[in-house]
Design a protein around this nucleic acid. Structure first.
Length: 544
RNA sequence: GGCCUUGUGGUCAAGCGGUUAAGACGGCGCCCUCUCACGGCGCAAUCCCGGGUUCGAUUCCCGGCAAGGUCACCA
């Protein structure tokens, strides 16, 4: 068969010489051992945690080695394209402080552009044409119906499904048949003529998983779809070769198609990059665990973290602890070091899927937030409230001075030990409520109503806003004693039966009256921040 | 179903032939000038199972089992 003629018929026109691309996209001028990695999302939905997870690994691996990480958009399937998806990726990378060097909408070195696969149609076709000329690719006229009928039959016969060997009908079409189909205007795809034998297995070194066994590919996979756009497999081989990727980091769901990629690189005459297949984030679902899913799990969406007001650095730290098993230990030892100093390694990445643990994230988030001072916290909360807060919450920020004092108190700034009450911005802001608004509801008080009121009235009589903390507490103790409570905890513990409670209960009465809550930081300071009038007003409300 | 991957406490995990089997999260208990938070101190784990190899196996080998992934003109 005249393959040149066939190639010209299938992909007519003048294409650049394939070799010319080697000079157009020359090997990168980087020292040995530097890695070039990439994040290659498809703009089919909004960026999720899995993308971030991958992006951080890409970024770290590249930059630890002094290399380059770039963003490529795999938009070959326009049916699934979602507007704004690329912008969402860029903005998420920025929000979580993951710095990319070049790529779509990022710019940088233009040598390897364009980064949108739709804009690279010519190069894919050039190489598809080359494969056809060499007899390594052929047109397939099978319809969707034929293909699914084939699949059904194979399934019924318990055979491996797919387009291979004797099932690859169009593989051995005669020249005459091919041209007849073409003349009839039948749509066609271009398939790889696979030379592999699934009986052959070999070891392949994966940078994350270690040695894996790979079965030779024998599937005549589609490389060019009927619209002339490449499939992922083909675009991957060409792009990662010409963008000079050295290390392909991707999800483990790609491991199954590694044989296809290996054959494609060989057929194209390209050197294989190294690969690292990382596990995916899992979620416990009843008895079993499964991949985090876009539909079912809100916590997969990065938007969730923004709305909840998770501190971006906390999310990044958590991703890092999942990504590299020794990160957590390192971070404990070097709490003040730059995250980028951590010696990130591909082979320290987990081999099995980790369950996403919100408790763990929450803990990290508390710790990260506790490292801020009140001004840093103010800024963080304000940014969140401006976008997601209620009007009432936004108003808190107008009272900057008061809010700063409240924050310092709630964070334990200046004390010996930092408090860790704040987990997320949304939770922090609602925790701050009682500084700015009177309680709407009151938590239950353990003390009977009558005594409770009497204590409140008594407090109002003796309260003096100019008292210092010690004097203030001295008065609380006196009130306790007057109403049958133990003024000293020690006394109470020594003989609980002798009292109707301790000074703790008295403090609780006051605390609930003032804040509506049974648990808050130091009550004296809260009253100071509230001011005398407001404090008295709330105490008065409590007696009603 | 075929193929691939994985299997240490509820979770993330260290460990790579001999250990009291680290650590972190969560849980529980106790302690800590008013609660909470912080902090401190404790408690809870038959290393998936069965065979080997070995003086000795969580660690090596084989076989099960379980879980996950994948089998598109989607990526």
């Amino acid at each position: 068969m005249d393959y040149r003629k066939l190639a010209e018929r299938l992909l007519p026109g003048n294409y650049p010489a394939p070799e010319s691309y080697e000079t157009l996209y020359p090997p990168r001028n980087l020292p040995p051992k530097t890695e070039v990695t990439r994040l290659a999302p498809s703009p089919t939905g909004f960026i999720h945690l899995g993308n971030l997870f991958s992006a951080i690994a890409d970024e770290r691996l590249a930059h630890r080695s002094g290399g380059v990480v770039y963003l490529r958009i795999e938009d070959t399937d326009l049916k699934r394209k979602v507007d704004g998806a690329v912008e969402a990726v860029i903005s998420a990378l920025k929000y979580f402080d993951v710095k990319f060097d070049e790529g779509a909408e990022i710019g940088g070195d233009e040598t390897y552009a364009p980064w949108y696969q739709r804009q690279r149609a010519e190069i894919y076709r050039t190489f598809a044409k080359k494969l056809i000329e060499e007899g390594r690719a052929y047109p397939c006229f099978c319809t969707e119906e034929e293909l699914s009928a084939l699949r059904e039959e194979q399934t019924k016969n318990k055979e491996i499904t797919g387009y291979y060997g004797k099932y690859a009908k169009c593989r051995n079409l005669s020249e005459e048949e091919i041209y007849k189909n073409l003349d009839a205007g039948k749509p066609f795809v271009i398939r790889l003529r696979s030379l592999g034998d699934p009986e052959n297995k070999f070891k392949f070194h994966d940078e994350i998983k270690g040695d894996v066994t790979v079965t030779e590919n024998d599937q005549d996979v589609v490389i060019l779809k009927s619209d002339g756009i490449p499939t992922y497999h083909f675009a991957h081989a060409i792009d990662d070769h010409f963008m000079r990727t050295t290390l392909v980091i991707r999800g483990e769901d790609w491991l199954a198609s590694l044989p296809i990629h290996i054959e494609l690189f060989r057929a194209l005459g390209f050197a294989l990059p190294r690969y690292g297949h990382h596990c995916s984030l899992m979620k416990q679902d009843g008895e079993t665990r499964r991949k985090l899913s876009k539909r079912k799990d809100p916590e997969l969406s990065l938007e969730f973290y923004r709305k909840e007001g998770y501190f971006p650095r906390a999310v990044k730290v958590y991703m890092l602890t999942l990504l590299n098993s020794n990160f957590e230990e390192w971070y404990l030892k070097h709490p003040d070091a730059d995250l980028n100093e951590f010696p990130f390694k591909a082979d320290k990445m987990s081999k099995s899927g980790a369950l996403f643990d919100l408790d763990k994230l929450n803990d990290i988030s508390k710790n990260e937030l506790a490292r801020l001072d009140e001004r840093g916290m103010f800024a963080f909360l304000k940014t969140w409230a401006d976008e997601f807060g209620t009007d009432a919450q936004k108003a808190y920020f107008a009272q900057e001075d008061k809010l700063l004092r409240a924050l310092a108190l709630c964070m334990g700034v200046g004390g010996k030990k930092r408090r860790k009450d704040f987990q997320t911005a949304s939770q922090a802001v609602s925790l701050l409520r009682y500084f700015f608004e009177r309680p709407e509801t009151y938590e239950e008080c353990r003390v009977p109503d009558q005594i409770r009121r009497a204590v409140l009235v008594d407090f109002d009589k003796t309260y003096d806003a100019s008292d210092d903390a010690q004097t203030w507490f001295g008065k609380v103790k006196e009130i306790a004693a007057r109403h049958g409570f133990a003024a000293e905890m020690k006394d109470y513990k020594a003989d609980p039966a002798a009292y109707c409670g301790s000074v703790a209960e008295v403090a609780e009465i006051l605390r609930i009256a003032v804040t509506g809550k049974a648990n808050t930081p130091d009550l004296y300071t809260i009253m100071q921040i509230l001011g005398e009038d407001e404090t008295r007003a709330r105490i008065g409300l409590g007696t009603k």
